[in-house]
Simulated assay, not measured.
Amino acid sequence: MHRRVRGGRRWAQVSEFELWQRSLGFAALGFLTLVPLLIVVSAADPASGRGFAQWLGDGLGVSAAAREDIERLFALPGQTLRTTTAFGLAVLAVFGLSFGATVQSGYEKVWNLPPARWWARWRHVVWLAVLIGVLFLSGVTPLWRATADRGVITLLSGALFFWWSQRMLLGGRVAWAALLPGAVITMAGLLGLRVFSRLVFSPLIASSAVTYGPVGTVLVIQSWLVGVGVVVFGGALAGRLLHEGLPRMAHALKRRG
């Protein structure tokens, strides 16, 4: 009976979280704000080749043919820098902060915390800057791409980033130990999403590009971003459930022993 009650409470937490709606918001803001910022940042590296398009293809883990379709959507790095204005960067930076606010509100919902005060918005600035830096180093910098242990470094750095992200955006209101399972699960989910992208999104990009043109490729990328949102928020929620469930399991095993 107690197990059924606990299971019902956990399911209530999952259903009240509105994972799908939050993931859609994550994807929309990510495509409208984060993607343009990363395009400009990646273009600042003259050795990055095709810049952001190359990074996005690596992130999705798609085939070479699908990467060519993605590259047709974005301007080359040199053209990007020539057409970028200071006003455009300022607008992107301002709206990009709303992306951090969306992630923060999702984490607060996971842990049933009240919204942070308005003066804590500086955390969004720090988090967004670190996020862009991590993505730039992991996907654009030639030194990182040439590293033999790139996969291991990416997994470890990603887990550390999501661990730190929860702590930063939640304002230290949740202990480090409680946040670690969510960070690990998030990275495991992103690894699974990469495999899924290779099997599903790669041929889908090719077929959509033929059927719908560039719009079809955009729709597939947007779907991938929705998947990233599901993993980010779902991983944090699963981490909390795991953190709260492990002590109960250990206590039950002791009673049986």
Results as ranks from 00 to 15, higher is better:
1 M>N: 13
5 V>K: 11
9 R>F: 12
10 R>E: 15
10 R>S: 14
10 R>V: 13
11 W>S: 05
13 Q>M: 13
13 Q>Y: 04
13 Q>W: 08
13 Q>V: 07
14 V>L: 07
15 S>K: 14
16 E>T: 09
18 E>F: 09
18 E>Y: 14
23 S>R: 04
24 L>D: 08
25 G>K: 03
27 A>Y: 02
28 A>V: 15
30 G>S: 04
33 T>R: 04
36 P>T: 07
36 P>Q: 04
40 V>S: 04
41 V>R: 08
44 A>D: 07
44 A>Y: 10
45 D>F: 10
51 G>Y: 04
52 F>A: 05
52 F>P: 01
55 W>H: 10
56 L>I: 09
56 L>N: 08
59 G>R: 15
60 L>D: 00
63 S>M: 07
67 R>W: 03
67 R>F: 06
69 D>S: 15
70 I>L: 09
71 E>V: 08
73 L>N: 07
80 T>F: 01
80 T>V: 15
81 L>E: 04
82 R>C: 07
90 A>F: 14
92 L>V: 00
97 L>Y: 11
98 S>I: 10
98 S>G: 15
105 S>Y: 06
105 S>H: 07
106 G>Q: 09
107 Y>Q: 05
110 V>G: 01
110 V>A: 01
112 N>R: 13
116 A>Y: 01
116 A>G: 15
117 R>P: 10
118 W>I: 10
120 A>Y: 05
122 W>D: 12
122 W>N: 10
123 R>S: 07
125 V>W: 08
125 V>G: 12
126 V>W: 05
126 V>L: 14
127 W>V: 06
128 L>P: 02
130 V>K: 01
131 L>P: 00
133 G>W: 07
134 V>Y: 04
145 R>V: 09
145 R>N: 13
147 T>W: 15
153 I>V: 14
154 T>Q: 11
154 T>N: 13
156 L>Y: 06
161 F>R: 02
163 W>C: 04
163 W>V: 04
164 W>F: 11
165 S>H: 03
166 Q>V: 00
167 R>W: 12
173 R>S: 12
174 V>H: 02
175 A>T: 15
176 W>S: 13
177 A>L: 15
178 A>D: 14
180 L>F: 11
180 L>M: 13
182 G>Q: 07
183 A>L: 06
184 V>L: 15
184 V>N: 12
185 I>Q: 00
186 T>S: 02
186 T>D: 00
189 G>H: 06
189 G>F: 10
191 L>M: 11
191 L>F: 11
193 L>G: 08
194 R>T: 09
195 V>D: 08
198 R>C: 09
200 V>H: 05
202 S>N: 06
207 S>G: 03
209 A>G: 10
215 V>F: 12
217 T>M: 05
218 V>I: 14
221 I>R: 02
222 Q>A: 14
225 L>A: 08
228 V>R: 00
230 V>D: 06
234 G>W: 00
238 A>Q: 05
241 L>P: 05
242 L>D: 02
243 H>W: 10
245 G>I: 04
247 P>C: 10
248 R>V: 12
250 A>E: 06
251 H>F: 07
256 R>C: 13
